[in-house]
Amino acid sequence: MSLTFIGLPLLLWSLNDLPQRTALKDSISVLTIIAFSLMLGQFFLARTSKNILKDYNLTKALKIHKLIGYIFVPILLAHPFLIIFPRYFEAGIEPKEAFITLITTFESPGVILGIIAWCLMFILGVTSLLRNKLPIKYKTWRVIHGILSIMFILIATRHAIMLGRHMDRAMSICMSIMAAGGILLLLKTYILKSSKIEGGTNE
């Protein structure tokens, strides 16, 4: 698992012919790529993998799922700020101005998708944190979580492919396959296991 969702993107990152940047900038890039890749991996670290995991391992997988969520969702939420962060240390436009330009470039569908994905991820994060305090049943929450996840990953992957600095052909294919695989797996789980909620999954 970790080999696929950490190793593969890292390998692709190291293979692409992008110019080297400062250590800070490259670290931020790597962190963001891994964080996003792990989001794709979340689809496989869930009930979706029940068939291949034993019950004990499933519990463990869900724990990891939570852990990854709590660590890497905030990183991705910070991702728009991380892009402009290095500007604090170099001459150029002010970071604040860069950020405002960044989130107001509505001519670009990629930016709009990014903002939507950011909001979805924010909702995913909050509803996960407050799951026990929400007045809904666990199973309902799970369905909502699944639907939100699919919406998020579709939009976020598209956003990443459209705008990602490191999105060369290999990285795009890799991310697309991972996303498609994750969504398929999730949909398959729901459709096979609980036919009741089938209607809600198709976007």
Binding site: L154, T157, M162, S172, I173, A179, L184, N202
Partner: peptide, 10 residues
């Protein structure tokens, strides 16, 4: 459909 979507955009 969904995976195709991503793929096409790519």
């Amino acid at each position: 459909k969904s995976s195709e979507n991503t793929d096409i955009s790519r």
